[in-house]
């Protein structure tokens, strides 16, 4: 179909309408902005204050390592920790790792289970360092049928 060409008059009318529309839109945006400035919470326009610290601290804590322990996850922060963080902690907390103990075979089974049922990806060349890390740091400890009570915090009981 051939393209219809506008007459000179139509063209002028169209461009006039378009200029008017643009101007109205611009004024609208200005009004909107000034209302926003008036009613928006002050906090939109300033940096987080000291009272926001819990969140900032929490974010900083993500990288905080004390005595070789990554504080927020409780995991041992050796040179393989970043691989663990990238592959494991996208889905679940590091605490799920640090509270568990297993042999290399046991950890491998958990990884296979996560791959089969939980959507974990193929770990590729990272699998070996991940299994090294887990089986070295989080191996089973020898325990009997019942351990002694540990970490007792003694206190004077008022009766």
């Amino acid at each position: 179909m051939a393209k219809r060409s506008y007459t000179q008059k139509e063209h002028e009318l169209l461009s006039k309408a378009s200029r008017l529309f643009n101007r109205a839109a611009f004024i609208g945006v200005l009004i909107g902005l000034s209302l926003a400035m008036r009613w928006a919470p002050v906090s939109w326009f300033k940096k987080p204050e000291l009272a926001d610290r819990p969140v900032l601290d929490a974010m900083a804590a993500d990288t905080l390592v004390i005595d070789g322990i990554h504080v927020s996850s409780g995991l041992i922060a050796d040179d393989r920790f970043n691989i663990i963080k990238a592959n494991c902690m996208a889905c679940h907390s590091g605490k799920l790792i640090s509270q568990n103990r297993a042999t290399r075979e046991g950890w491998k089974e958990m990884i296979t289970w996560m791959q089969k049922t939980q959507g974990l990806w193929d770990l590729g060349e990272n699998e070996v360092p991940i299994l090294d890390y887990l089986s070295e740091h989080y191996a089973p400890q020898v325990a009997g049928r019942r351990s002694a009570l540990k970490n007792i915090e003694w206190y004077e009981l008022e009766q």
Binding site: V55, A58, L64, L96, Q99
Partner: peptide, 24 residues
């Protein structure tokens, strides 16, 4: 925010609860 904060507490829960896992 529930990912990593140190001393994470579950909203509405007593601070003395022991958080085993913050995700889930």
């Amino acid at each position: 925010f529930t990912d990593h904060p140190t001393g994470f507490e579950i909203p509405g829960k007593h601070a003395g609860l022991v958080v085993l896992n913050d995700k889930p």
